[in-house]
């Protein structure tokens, strides 16, 4: 498959800190790629390198099969939050950005600005000064800027940051609609539910390294299923589960968990009943994406060094 973004050994060092440490990104064209990682893991620096804002210390990268400067007119980006001139209106700010684009057609600028604003639901506030915008409106204007022209690749850094639940849903459905049109979306996020909902592929960053990359379905399939037994007799349940050969048994107040392994769930239930354990509930579950994320990065949402 053609890669929308490909990098080899991409490294960015700030002083003695390896902000990005030899990552090999492979973002398939047409995918929605979730770029995950705790704060400070190098996501934004990676995006800055890909956009040509920051120069890589070593390694190489290709956007849409070509160099950054050639690809950028076909790339819409939202980097580290929206940034606009406070005393200009939403429309004036977008016209300013469009004027800076040497490949943009001036005669269609107004129409394109209008439709970009409409697409993010900002038409009513188009004439208002940016400084009067709420956080959510600013975020929408940032997305509108990324949609000024038809794009082949969108790089969105935390696109639903600061949006209310309704706005979050709107932006997510907008991303889904754009992906449906064939636009590749590179979505940096720390909202795992967002990634689960939108993304076909994921890359997980930890301390500057890309610790996992591939189809989301493959990541989910990696996770072993486990059984969860709800019972008032956790000690007995533990004995039975261990006797039928389940590993990783953990008993807690009111329930017991164990890895299912190769065992069949119906055999486990039968063994529990035969063993005289009062089963109040039985379920086969998989680890949540969050648990997998913690397992991969070794941490939750704390800021890493």
């Amino acid at each position: 498959m053609v890669a929308a973004i490909a990098s080899e050994g991409l490294t960015k060092r700030f002083g003695s800190l390896n902000a990005v440490d030899g990552i090999d990104l492979a973002v398939p064209a047409g995918s929605v790629y979730g770029f995950l990682g705790p704060n400070g893991s190098g996501k934004t620096t990676t995006i800055r390198v890909l956009l040509g804002l920051v120069f890589a210390t070593s390694g190489s990268h290709v956007l849409l099969g070509t160099s950054t400067q050639r690809a950028l007119p076909k790339v819409g980006a939202l980097v580290e939050g929206p940034a606009f001139h406070p005393y200009l209106s939403g429309t004036a700010n977008l016209l300013r950005l469009d004027a800076a684009d040497r490949t943009a057609d001036a005669s269609t600028a107004r129409a394109r600005v209008g439709s970009a604003l409409e697409r993010v639901g900002l038409t009513a506030a188009a004439g208002k000064r940016y400084r009067a915008y709420s956080l959510g409106m600013r975020q929408r204007l940032g997305i509108a800027a990324a949609l000024l022209r038809p794009r082949e690749l969108l790089m969105l850094d935390e696109p639903t940051n600061g949006l209310d639940p309704q706005g979050t849903r709107e932006v997510r459905s907008l991303i889904a609609a754009l992906a449906g049109e064939g636009v590749t979306v590179f979505l940096s996020s720390h909202l795992l539910s967002e990634v689960e909902q939108l993304c076909s592929d994921v890359g997980v960053m930890s301390a500057g390294r890309l610790v996992w990359q591939g189809a989301l379905a493959d990541l989910r399939a990696q996770q072993e299923p486990y059984v969860r037994v709800e019972t008032v007799q956790p000690a007995e349940a533990r004995q039975v589960l261990e006797s039928v050969g389940l590993a990783g048994v953990e008993a807690a107040d009111g329930h017991v968990r164990a890895r299912l392994g190769e065992a069949r769930p119906e055999d486990v239930v039968a063994a529990l009943v035969r063993g005289g354990v009062g089963v109040r509930g039985f379920a086969v579950e998989r680890a949540s994406l969050e648990e997998q994320f913690v397992a991969l990065t070794g941490e939750g949402f704390d800021v890493s060094g």
Partner: peptide, 10 residues
Amino acid sequence: GTLRYLLAIP
């Protein structure tokens, strides 16, 4: 912060 967006235009 508008500098990064001007340069990303590019």
